[in-house]
């Protein structure tokens, strides 16, 4: 019990003294996961919308694949990204294994199916005749898609939260492709794993608390927006 109390005390000490190392780790976590989420939103919203609005042979299979992808195990993603970026792997020439960029790639791969799946569901939930109504108002195809995305903005906020939540708390892929290099690729989750392994429970708890507070604050802001706009 004493360990936990001490850990939490340590966490707030590190937070309030703005410990440079902890601050660096936190900012890197935000930057990497933020970028990965942004990339996944760009790809996921486009693909999800496209699949929702079109009919093509094999569509059912694509939808099943997206849904399966929503539960992609991070370690498997980490493994394949590592293989691709390995020195003599297909993309080895890029020399980006064990860099923050590698983590961004791995996390974007994890978050994209989640964002795609939620976008697809949100788009299919809009009234069937809404597309026809928008076309009847004179919209071009692009205008129609833009209006539909705006109409689905509340469920799409859920996609942002789910995507970001999945990558900020992910550890397997980050440690495999990033390597947990101090001051370079060390993020909150990988640091927590390492400190726990070394028996430094107080610092591990401190990092865990920071991660938790971070997740909570970001989701609180998004939830605030979502609930304010909620239909009554």
């Amino acid at each position: 019990m004493e360990i936990i109390v001490e850990g939490i005390r340590q966490a707030f000490y590190l937070l309030f003294t703005l410990d440079p190392e902890v601050l660096g780790i936190t900012l890197l976590s935000l930057e990497v996961s933020g970028t990965a989420t942004l990339i996944s939103l760009l790809i996921g919203i486009s693909v999800g919308t496209a699949v929702a609005l079109t009919r093509f042979p094999g569509r059912q299979l694509v939808v099943s694949m997206i849904n399966t992808g929503m539960g992609l195990p991070p370690v498997v993603v980490g493994l394949f990204v590592t293989i691709f970026l390995w020195r003599n792997g297909p993309l080895g020439d890029l020399e980006i294994l064990y860099t923050p960029t590698a983590i961004v790639i791995a996390q974007a791969i994890i978050a994209t199916p989640i964002v795609t799946g939620i976008t697809l569901a949100a788009m299919q939930h809009l009234p069937k005749n809404l597309r026809l109504q928008i076309l009847a108002l004179g919209a071009t195809r692009l205008q129609m898609i833009w209006i539909l995305v705006k109409e689905a903005k509340l469920p799409l906020l859920a996609a942002v939260m789910a995507g970001f939540g999945s990558v900020i708390s992910e550890v397997g892929a980050s440690i495999m492709v990033g390597g947990n290099i101090k001051g370079y690729t060390r993020v909150l989750t990988t640091a927590t794993v390492m400190e726990t392994g070394k028996g430094n429970f107080d610092i591990a708890i401190a990092l865990g608390v920071i991660l938790f507070i971070l997740c909570f604050m970001i989701n609180a802001v998004l939830t605030q927006i979502q609930q304010k706009e909620r239909p009554r």
Partner: peptide, 8 residues
Amino acid sequence: FQEPLLFD
């Protein structure tokens, strides 16, 4: 249409 289909 029969449903108003208004935007949010």
